[in-house]
Design a binder for these strands. Structure first.
Lengths: 157, 157
DNA sequence: AGATAATTGGATAATTATATCCACTTGATG
DNA sequence: CATCAAGTGGATATAATTATCCAATTATCT
């Protein structure tokens, strides 16, 4: 339903939000969120182009959230990397249905609208309050800033 | 959001429902719904395996709806060809989140649940009442049964 | 200025989704 | 029982998505 890319982008943004306004390297984010580093780099580029994230090149560079976590919705992230496509015109290109979608496509589009609304109302900030004092993604406790490349204790599977 | 396959399957089912309990050949359905015939054949096979549609081989064969249009929901069709995957386990495989999803994935799964509910409540029968006396999909007027291979008047693009 | 650590962008590979084709089987009909 | 129109299943092609790799660029630190 949601693409892999969206899943990855959301993980990255949540992790950046959790460490806001800290800046983290692609490697750090990749490790914490279990996203393939090479691919994550592309995803982050997309988020940067959309202005959701700020890139800092060079030594001690990395990425940081460009907006406050409560100004940023899940929908913003989704639309930045893999836009939710509403059905605005008849997919069959029928003249008859140009002004008003046929019931099938109307219904499908309504579902999209519903999702769009829900996701736009879900702010990233809301995703950070974890009841059990656990970190949002990641089993490990909050990583100390600029920690060396410690291997996260990881259960197999 | 919804795959091409789902879109095709829904078009086929709606068209079959519209002609219910008539049986239509793959070619006829393909023409009316603008779905590539070769691919539609696979999609219909899937629908047949799921029991939503009945295949009749041999001369004067074709496909017909196996259930009444008001017993069949959009969700049934979606699940038959490209199941809506709910998020039941933590996508990161985190032990901590085994019992309770982290807020991000909870929220995403809630969206899925919402869609699932909406689509399960949308019966195919409801998609057939078109206000303007137009056919559900397809510009053409209701095709006379067993019509010869007339070319549907089609605007370019 | 040189060394180092980081992102950037381009090329490419692997995988999955979409689509086509064809030989085979099935069943109705004359 | 021969014929022919239809679905079936397998092989294969094409396109899009996901993923990897590396040379080039940029910024920081000493």
């Amino acid at each position: 339903m949601f693409s892999q890319t969206v899943e990855y982008a959301l993980r990255a943004v949540v992790w950046l939000a959790y460490n806001h306004p800290e800046s983290l390297t692609t490697q750090e984010i990749a490790r914490s969120t279990q996203v393939p580093a090479g691919y994550l780099s592309k995803v982050l580029q997309g988020l940067a182009r959309a202005g959701l994230v700020q890139a800092q090149r060079g030594l001690h560079g990395g990425f940081s959230l460009a907006l406050s976590p409560d100004e940023l919705s899940i929908l913003d992230v989704v639309n930045a990397v893999d836009p939710l496509r509403r059905i605005s015109r008849c997919p069959l290109g029928l003249a008859t249905h140009a002004k008003r979608l046929c019931p099938l496509h109307k219904r499908l589009d309504d579902s999209m609208a519903m999702i769009e609304k829900t996701l736009s109302e879900s702010k990233i900030a809301e995703l950070l309050n974890v009841p059990a004092a656990a970190t949002p993604l990641c089993d490990a406790p909050p990583v100390p800033r600029r920690a060396p490349l410690t291997v996260t204790a990881r259960r197999k599977r």
